[in-house]
Nucleic acid binder design. Structure first.
Lengths: 161, 161
DNA sequence: CTCCTTGCAAAGCCTTTGCATTTAC
DNA sequence: GTAAATGCAAAGGCTTTGCAAGGAG
């Protein structure tokens, strides 16, 4: 698993460098840092989380650069934008997680990660049918936890904060 | 078609009134106006579009109420929130459009509406498997137009604006 | 050496909030 | 009559932008 993750990160970095060369853009250390932060994370992050994590590691990056880089990575399909209903964007790696989706509870806000082995193929087919080349996609599902008790407990915790 | 749309709107309104009664909330004319605006629209709208359309019709509604109502309708699963990458939320009716998704071109920004007859069933199954009751969902696909010429033309138009 | 990129701070924009007023039930 | 909803304006929070300084190719 550890090994797999590193491979993904390495693959992303190789792709990134090649993209940058093609587009005549520069591979700065800040950009690589953001890429690694996202690929090293187990799930979705928002811009501020990425900024703070990098600062804590001693990387002297600015928010402006984080936003610029995220936009770049999105355009290159190395990260996806997802909207979990928090009114700000989250970001997630695309490589190696094409069967990935989120289910958000509308009551307690809990976000569950789910996988589907049909999803990627279906989206790919839909793109073809509609005259598009697939870049990335994100599926958000809003619903309610079936476990009402645990859900209510979490909702209470949220209130408290 | 016209008939079908009206039926959906009527169905949404009935559901809404019953929800409101159950929750002890009030059916104000502003809330009904927002609901009708969304159900009367052919596609996704953002909060400001809803506000402006209602104002043009002479409805004296405020932005605050539009936002409050959208939140309410979302919680009741009468509208879905979608993120088309514009960094602000769009809203769309849920009733009668469960097979609906968006494909956004990352180059020119064009949004295509697509349908899939497998999608709703798949999402429903995923919810069950993961211990959730389905409320609503939204799938956004980011990619590139295959028609490069038309795409480049649209991109140029966007620049001009 | 050139042009891209960074970082700071300010501006921008969407969304939420506090509070007095109005209104549905 | 009373609790809920509206509207206004101000505040809030995420994101973008302008511009000077720095750095990759």
């Amino acid at each position: 698993m550890q090994h797999e993750r590193n491979e993904q990160t390495a693959q992303a970095e190789t792709l990134f460098r090649s993209f940058m060369k093609t587009e005549g853009l520069r591979c700065t250390s800040e950009r690589i840092d953001v890429l690694q932060e996202i690929y090293g994370a187990d799930s979705h992050l928002d811009a501020d989380e990425i900024y703070n994590r990098l600062r804590k590691k001693g990387t002297g990056i600015s928010r402006a650069t984080v936003y610029h880089t995220l936009d770049l990575l999105f355009r290159l399909n190395l990260v996806t934008r997802i909207d979990l209903g928090h009114h700000h964007t989250h970001y997630e790696k695309t490589l190696g997680v094409a069967n990935h989706l989120h289910i958000v509870c509308q009551k307690c806000g809990k976000v569950s990660e789910a996988t589907s082995n049909q999803l990627a193929g279906m989206v790919e087919a839909l793109c073809s049918e509609n005259g598009f080349t697939l870049g990335s996609f994100s599926l958000q599902v809003f619903g309610e936890c079936r476990d009402k008790e645990a859900c209510a407990e979490r909702a209470r915790q949220n209130e408290a904060e």
